[in-house]
């Protein structure tokens, strides 16, 4: 039997706030296979970031355990790269130095590092900006740097927390297409968080809908395995969102999320 790449076993996460314990993630179990693109979608504040940080090893669960390749996750590691919603670039480093950051700790020699950095800067279409500083870039370009930085570091798992959330609609669409293309070029295991239903269906092999806080998994939809949108990865964003299969799925998902928002009155 193939071992799960990631296995979250009855995980609950809470925050201490003013002597009160706030349950953010409630008893979540999930296994992710190697090479899978898993999208978690849910209303804001439902615990998506918290769950992802738990997978990254940045937050410790109060109950349950998280495993990678059968080994318990106890802290952050370069094997689980993170793309943060706020870009999190080092502002004093150039684009090149940002992308190179993790490679130094992998003991890769300088020449080789340069090659790798060049390759991924090309992949995110930022050639010519190697020597720019983050403050000189637009939001979309910053997030491209962050994606290149994580890809270049060759993590086994890519964790992306609403990476396109801060971008305008056009930039976002292009970034989604490019990410889909990159995913096909270099198959990685991806956990992608969003609150956009369209983005979830467009990108995810598997889409998980979370309930409002405390976050549980409400429903899991196997977009790829059940072949719900045939040939999706070879089509552009606009073509996909106009497919009937896409619209049907979107209606279903949106119904589930809307129910959460209305039911729990989190508006």
């Amino acid at each position: 039997m193939q071992q799960d790449k990631i296995f979250a076993d009855h995980v609950s996460v809470a925050y201490e706030k003013d002597d009160e314990s706030l349950l953010a993630v409630d008893d979540v179990t999930l296994s992710i296979q190697e090479g899978e693109f898993v999208v978690i979608v849910g209303p804001s504040g439902c615990g998506k970031t918290t769950f992802m940080n738990t997978l990254a090893g940045l937050v410790k669960p109060i109950r349950g355990k998280v495993f990678m390749d059968g080994k318990q996750i106890t802290g952050p590691s370069a094997e689980r790269g993170v793309v943060f919603q706020q870009f999190a670039l080092f502002p004093w480093k150039t684009v090149f130095e940002n992308v190179e950051f993790g490679l130094k700790y992998r003991g890769i020699p300088k020449d080789e590092r340069r090659e790798i950095v060049r390759k991924y800067i090309r992949m995110v279409k930022l050639e010519g900006f190697e020597n720019s500083f983050p403050h000189e870039l637009s939001g979309g370009m910053k997030q491209r740097v962050a994606i290149a930085r994580v890809y270049a570091n060759m993590p086994q798992i890519l964790l992306m927390d609403e990476p396109f959330g801060a971008l305008d609609a056009q930039t976002r669409t292009i970034m989604q297409e490019d990410l889909s293309e990159m995913f096909m070029m270099e198959k990685r295991t991806v956990v992608f968080i969003t609150h956009s239903v369209d983005e979830a269906i467009y990108l995810g092999d598997r889409v998980i809908i979370m309930t409002a806080r405390p976050g549980k998994f409400k429903k899991i939809i196997n977009v790829t395995a059940d072949c719900l949108i045939p040939n999706r990865r070879n089509l552009g964003y606009d073509d996909v969102v106009n497919l009937k299969a896409f619209r049907d799925l979107k209606r279903e998902l949106w119904g589930l999320i809307k129910a959460e928002i209305v039911e729990k009155r989190i508006l």
Partner: peptide, 25 residues
Amino acid sequence: DPILIKAAQTLGAKDKDVLREVILP
């Protein structure tokens, strides 16, 4: 900004690297 520390850690930086490469600058 704690997000910068988290970014460094998830890129493989150890405590001393975080101090030198993130905290100081």
